[in-house]
Design a protein around this nucleic acid. Structure first.
Length: 407
DNA sequence: AAGCATTGCAACCGCGATCCA
DNA sequence: TTGGATCGCGGTTGCAATGCT
């Protein structure tokens, strides 16, 4: 038996709320207060589900709901907090005055998630093959269809203030990101590096080379040509995934196992490689793990929900693949294997030695150690970003830490 | 001008958490 | 302690709005 419905659905109205319904709901709640959502529609004379009434009130009718566009400050806060907290929209919304979880969630899904990461592949012949830069996101190639409202507003703003962006102003990476993201054309995913990003790219190169020295796989060619999987795996972002997907799918030696809809690729007969794609915080992720282990099959059964918490840049060093269970929410593997993990909003710092943290699944679950989520939050706090964003969210960081501790 | 493609947002849905008798 | 009722959250869907061809 399933649970009882929250309300009698027969005869209830669905879809958009009319102004009359809004007025009715508002007047009733103003007179009687919030709560008792189940009985509210009947008492108020609304042919709506109680849940629908609650949602309408919380997301739209409440007096303290903030209208208008998400500001850049709010956007930065969202990004930072999402990096640490994952899809905990209500928690994030709690740090943004007047914003609802639904609004934050929608904004994330429609604006932020697809432009936070991308992959670059220099045309040069030398490795490293993969270069990632936070600011290289882009909405991809020129698209058809409606320009985003944000872009329209931006265009309007730019038209009104045509000189504002032509004065060699140094853009923050996010600004660059935003500028690049809206409907600009690109070629094969390659974008000329912005001056501001060159150092970051160098860091990426150095760090990725460092990881390669650690024996981790860094080179897509290695994957495509050698199909050799070292003892480690690497989660990449959506851009990496796309690139790898293209290359691997174009390879004769590769086959999809039919679970591609779930995001699982491989294992393939005769190959040593398995890949697990997972939706990640910033869109997509790729987890590369050795085939023949239990992780792949487990993930198939469980719908590849691992790593959906949204952490970015997880690096595995376990040879047996320990990460089959959900991370971040207590559902850790209990097989007691240990490894290393890292989380960051940028893969650049992902491979810095100092950022490597030894973890132990058992410890995460039951020991006094910080949970994964906590580690992430702390890593964010430790990662003293002296930039504007970092300053701006200091207070939010404190609140986030408090919220996390309380939770 | 019409149809198509795409976006963004409001709303719905299912489920876990919490409350309470 | 138990189980039903309710709340709250996050994922997903539907559709109006809008730009492009």
């Amino acid at each position: 038996m399933g649970r009882a419905p929250c309300c009698e659905k027969v005869g209830l109205k669905k879809g958009r709320w009319t102004t009359e319904e809004d007025e009715t709901l508002s007047k009733y709640i103003e007179a009687n207060g919030e709560g008792s959502w189940r009985s509210l529609p009947k008492n108020a004379g609304l042919k709506r589900c109680g849940k629908s009434c609650r949602l309408r009130w919380i997301n739209y009718l409440r007096a303290d709901v903030k209208r208008g566009n998400i500001t850049t400050e709010e956007e930065d806060t969202i990004i930072k907090m999402h990096n640490s907290l994952g899809n905990r929209w209500s928690l994030i919304a709690g740090h943004l005055q007047g914003r609802t979880d639904n609004e934050i969630k929608n904004y994330w899904n429609s604006h932020l998630s697809r432009r936070l990461h991308t992959i670059r592949r220099p045309s040069g012949e030398d490795p490293p093959t993969i270069v990632m830069d936070l600011a290289k996101i882009g909405g991809g190639c020129k698209r058809k269809g409606r320009t985003s409202r944000a872009a329209m507003k931006k265009n309007n703003r730019n038209n009104n203030d045509s000189n504002s962006n032509n004065n060699n102003k140094t853009l923050s990476s996010k600004e660059v990101l935003t500028e690049k993201s809206e409907g600009e054309s690109c070629e094969s995913g390659l974008i000329d590096p912005m001056p501001l990003q060159e150092e970051s790219m160098r860091n990426d190169v150095e760090l990725l080379e460092g990881l390669e020295r650690k024996g981790m796989i860094l080179d897509t060619d290695m994957w495509v040509e050698k199909r050799h999987v070292p003892a480690q795996g690497l989660i990449l972002d959506g851009g990496s995934r796309s690139l790898l997907s293209e290359e691997i799918e174009s390879s004769e030696r590769t086959c999809l196992n039919g679970d591609s809809e779930k995001g699982i690729l491989g294992p393939c007969d005769g190959l040593e490689t398995s890949m697990l794609f997972c939706d990640d915080i910033m869109g997509d992720g790729v987890l590369m793990i050795p085939s023949g282990n239990s992780v792949v099959s487990e993930e198939k059964e469980n719908g590849a929900s691992s790593f959906s918490e949204g952490e970015m840049g997880l690096v595995m060093s376990s040879t047996k693949g320990t990460s089959s269970e959900e991370r971040g929410s207590g559902g850790m593997s209990s097989n007691g294997e240990s490894g290393e993990w890292y989380s960051s909003g940028s893969i650049s710092s992902c491979f810095q030695d100092s950022d490597w943290v030894n973890w132990n699944w058992d410890g995460v679950v039951e020991g006094p150690n910080l949970s994964h989520e906590g580690e992430e939050l702390l890593s964010w706090l430790w990662d003293s970003d002296n930039g504007e964003v970092g300053k701006m969210v200091e207070f939010e960081q404190e609140k986030a830490l408090s919220a996390w501790l309380l939770s």
